[in-house]
Design a binder for these strands. Structure first.
Length: 401
DNA sequence: GCGATCAGCT
DNA sequence: CACAGCTGATCGC
C-alpha cells in the first residue's frame, strides 16, 4: 500500500487516515492528548474509552466505525495526485473491549490488519466476525496480512476462554476460606471476571481507576472498590509477584490466579524453581493460539504475511509454520519486516550505581514509595498505585503519611 | 518544571 | 522468555 495513505496503530508519521485497533499501550505509542495529525478511526468502545486514556484529546478527530460495518473513504493519494477510494471493513477481534481488525480494499488490493485478536470460533462473537470477514472478502483472498503472531509457535496451545473461566471458578470454589487475587491489565479479561462474579454470586474488587473503566464499559454493579464486600480482587498484573502473594499470606490465606497464554508466566510465582503453593497460573488468553492462527490462515489465504508482534520470542516468521498450508510458499515471499531480535540490540552491563532514594520503604514486601514523576503520572491518569497501596494498608492497618 | 523517551523490570 | 505496563532516569525545551 502507498506510504502516507493509511496508518494502523502507528501515530508518529504523516498519514491521510489513522486507524486504532484497540487501546492497549503497545498499540498507542505516540498517541497523546495533544496528538492531532489527522482523523482517527476506531470502534465505538475505543472511542468511548479514548478520552479517559488521553484527557483533552480533540474529539473532532475521532471517526467511529461500527463493528461489522463497511465504510467507503475518499483519501488523497500523493503518488497518483488524486483522490482514491478505500473501502474499510471493521471486524470484531475478540481481544479486549473495543478491539477490532481492519480489512482495507482499494487499488492496492486487499489488506487485512488483525491487530491483536483471538480466533475462537466456538464463540458466537468470533462466528459473527468470520461472517463479516467472508462477506467483505467476497470470495477473494487477502493479498497482505498483518498478523497477531504473539503465539505463532506450535508449542502454544490453550483451551477456549469459557473453559478456562470455569477452571478458575473451580479453583476459587476449592478455596472457600481464601482470599483470591487475579492479575489483570488496564483493559481486558472482563469476561473472565464477569463469569466468576456470576458463578460465585460475588462482587469483585478492582482498583478505582479500573472501576472507572468498568463503568465506562457499562458494568455498574458487579465491581467495587470496597474490599470488605468480597474476597475476590482483581489487581494490576505488574504488582502481582511471588513477594506480594507471600506477604498477603502472612495476613490472610490468599491464592493468586494469573490468567495468561504464556506458560512461563508461572515463573512469576516461582522462587528457586519451586512453584508457589498458593499460585495458580491459568491459560486464559486474549490472543489466538497456534491452531487458531492456522484456522485463520486457511480462511484468508494471504499472499504475504507480516507479524505485528516483534518480541524476541515471537519474531519467527509466521510463514515458516504456514508455508505448507493451501499450497502457498510463504518462504519465497518478502522477508518479515520490522522484526528484529531485541536482545541483539540491547546494551548490557550498565555499571551505573543504583541509588536508593529517601522515602522508599517496604511493608510486607510491598513498596510504598512514590516518586515525583509517579505522582505526576498519577495526577494525570488516575490513582492506580495509591489504591494498590490502599488494598494493602486496609489489610495491614498501616497509615500512609 | 514538563513531556518524551529509554532502560530495567515483571 | 515478556501478553502489557509501571517506574525511575535522563535529556531537551
Amino acid at each position: 500500500m502507498e506510504k502516507g495513505l493509511i496508518s494502523v496503530d502507528r501515530w508518529g508519521q504523516e498519514s491521510q487516515a489513522y486507524f486504532l485497533t484497540h487501546l492497549h499501550a503497545d498499540h498507542t505509542k505516540g498517541l497523546s492528548p495533544q496528538w492531532c495529525r489527522g482523523p482517527l478511526f476506531c470502534s465505538p468502545i475505543s472511542a468511548h474509552l479514548l478520552p479517559s486514556k488521553f484527557p483533552g484529546f480533540d474529539p473532532s478527530l475521532i471517526r467511529v466505525l461500527d463493528v461489522g460495518s463497511t465504510q467507503c473513504l475518499s483519501l488523497h493519494s500523493h503518488t497518483a495526485g488524486s483522490q482514491v477510494r478505500v473501502v474499510v471493513t471493521t471486524i470484531d477481534a475478540h481481544h479486549c473491549p473495543g478491539a477490532v481488525m481492519y480489512l482495507f480494499r482499494g487499488e492496492f488490493g486487499c489488506v487485512l490488519y488483525t491487530g491483536d485478536f483471538r480466533w475462537e470460533l466456538r464463540s458466537k462473537r468470533a462466528m459473527m466476525g468470520k461472517k463479516t470477514l467472508l462477506e467483505a472478502l467476497q470470495g477473494d483472498k487477502v493479498d497482505a496480512l498483518y498478523l497477531d503472531n504473539t503465539y505463532c509457535h506450535p508449542s502454544f496451545s490453550f483451551p477456549p476462554r469459557e473453559v478456562v473461566a470455569e477452571q478458575v471458578v473451580d479453583i476459587i470454589t476449592r478455596h472457600p476460606n481464601h482470599d483470591v487475587i487475579i492479575g489483570i491489565d488496564t483493559l481486558g479479561k472482563e469476561d473472565l471476571l464477569l463469569h466468576i462474579s456470576q458463578a460465585l454470586g460475588t462482587k469483585i474488587w478492582v482498583w478505582p481507576e479500573r472501576l472507572q473503566i468498568m463503568h465506562l464499559l457499562g458494568f455498574d454493579d458487579i465491581f467495587t472498590t470496597n474490599s470488605n464486600l468480597t474476597r475476590v480482587r482483581a489487581v494490576p498484573r505488574y504488582s502481582f509477584t511471588f513477594d506480594t502473594l507471600e506477604s498477603l499470606n502472612t495476613i490472610h490465606p490468599t491464592i493468586g490466579i494469573m490468567p495468561s497464554g504464556l506458560p512461563w508466566d508461572s515463573k512469576i510465582f516461582n522462587n528457586d524453581d519451586k512453584l508457589h503453593q498458593y499460585a495458580y497460573p491459568v491459560l486464559y488468553s486474549e490472543h489466538s493460539c497456534f491452531s487458531e492462527l492456522q484456522e485463520f490462515m486457511k480462511l484468508v489465504q494471504p499472499s504475504i504475511v507480516t507479524g505485528i508482534v516483534s518480541s524476541s520470542f515471537c519474531y519467527i516468521n509466521p510463514r515458516h509454520y504456514f508455508s505448507r498450508l493451501n499450497n502457498f510458499n510463504y518462504e519465497k515471499a518478502e522477508s518479515l519486516k520490522g522484526n528484529r531480535n531485541k536482545s541483539l540490540l540491547r546494551r548490557t552491563g550498565s555499571n551505573r550505581l543504583k541509588v536508593r532514594k529517601e522515602g522508599k520503604f517496604k511493608i510486607a514486601g510491598l513498596s510504598f514509595h512514590r516518586g515525583r514523576v509517579a505522582i505526576m503520572r498519577k495526577e494525570r491518569r488516575g490513582a492506580k498505585i495509591a489504591e494498590t497501596d490502599a488494598l494493602c494498608t486496609s489489610k495491614l492497618n498501616v497509615k500512609m503519611g
